[in-house]
Amino acid sequence: MDFRLTGEQRDLRAGVRDLLAGRYGREALRASLEAGVAVDRRLWRELGEAGFFSLRLPEADGGVGLGLPEAVLVFEEAGRALLPGPLVATHLAAGVVPGAASGTTVVTAFDLGGPLVAHLGEADAVLGASAPPEGEPVRSVDPLTPLHRVTGPGPAPDRPDAGRRPAPGPDPAPYPDPVPYRDEGALLTAALQVGSALRTVELAVDHAGRREQFGQPIGAFQAVKHLCAGMLVRAEVARTAVYAAAVTGDAAEIAAAKLLADEAAVQGARDCLQVYGGMGFTWEADVHLHLKRAWVRAEQWRTAAQAEELLAADLLGAVG
């Protein structure tokens, strides 16, 4: 099987990168931070018009008619640009929630596995719920991923297949769980993590080439070379796993891809901070933003513990 990207796929990735560079470059990112606005409605509609959310809808339904392999390329670029907002939930809601495909409706989800909901204050709908619930804001580690804690009973599911979380105990969680979308949500979040991991490699290498100590770039030092090499290896292994899982659609492979991508994004950002030194922790640098976003994404759709349990069950089933 040939896993190399086709010309059309490379063009798609390049087009999305150009779009985001023009509409959500570093200046726009910084403007979002200063304004404290994670979801730019105008940009959201532009993404909808560009087919970001309707990418996998059939052409007969007004979509682009592509598949998961193309979607992970698009989300990888979004992760690279640190594009904020409930991108995954809105993409998954295309064709289900009116206005999601066009970007006129912002959709979030109970993808954190409990009462915390990201972007609840900016969302028009919640995937799998009849209406957005009431919630109180709580402090988030990522300034562009605002969190709310639901203050009352979870909203009723609007479809039986998107109902409440199945649990072995007598007290199941009272929040709608987007079960039918769990694998796709985990895969697309993994693609976001891969994009972030690859971007931190670029940031580390660029800084190592410019920053000098003892009369030479710090990139000439073996310790820095090892850090950058390790970052690249983790990012490329995770990217390969995400691409493969997008082709097969296998739940176990998606779980493995999420594990690898979370590690690549979190550890890559940590190592990038190490390369930057003390200035990496300052507000002027972007490295800490990648780390904070990676921490949040690692808890969305499928955590490391959940992915490990799924992989273990799959392995035990194969052995049995």
Rank of each mutant, 00 (worst) to 15 (best):
V74G: 03
H148E: 12
G154R: 02
E27W: 06
V287S: 02
T6K: 09
L47C: 09
G15I: 03
L232T: 12
A28T: 07
G99R: 14
G209Y: 09
A318V: 05
A71P: 04
A229P: 08
S102W: 07
A191P: 09
A255S: 05
T282L: 15
G277D: 12
A186M: 02
A28L: 11
L33E: 13
A21I: 02
H91S: 15
Q267T: 07
E46V: 04
G169H: 13
A109G: 10
G195T: 10
D11Y: 01
G163T: 03
L187E: 01
V275R: 09
R302K: 11
D183V: 00
W283M: 09
E70P: 00
T200N: 07
G7P: 04
L43D: 12
L316S: 13
E263K: 08
A208H: 07
T151S: 05
C228N: 13
D161K: 01
L227P: 01
D262A: 15
L120Y: 05
D2K: 07
A204C: 10
G320L: 08
L127G: 06
F110L: 02
A265H: 11
A162H: 08
L19Y: 14
E34V: 12
S102A: 15
P178K: 03
L116N: 05
D11T: 11
A14E: 14
F52G: 10
L310M: 13
G268V: 00
W44F: 11
E263I: 03
Y24K: 06
E77K: 04
G22V: 05
V247H: 15
E253M: 10
D271Q: 15
G103N: 04
R4P: 01
A269N: 04
V150L: 08
L188C: 02
Q267G: 02
A93G: 05
L203D: 06
L120K: 01
R302M: 15
D18Q: 14
P137D: 06
D183L: 02
L260G: 05
T145V: 12
A285I: 12
A252F: 03
V107D: 01
V233D: 14
A101L: 10
R41L: 07
G128N: 00
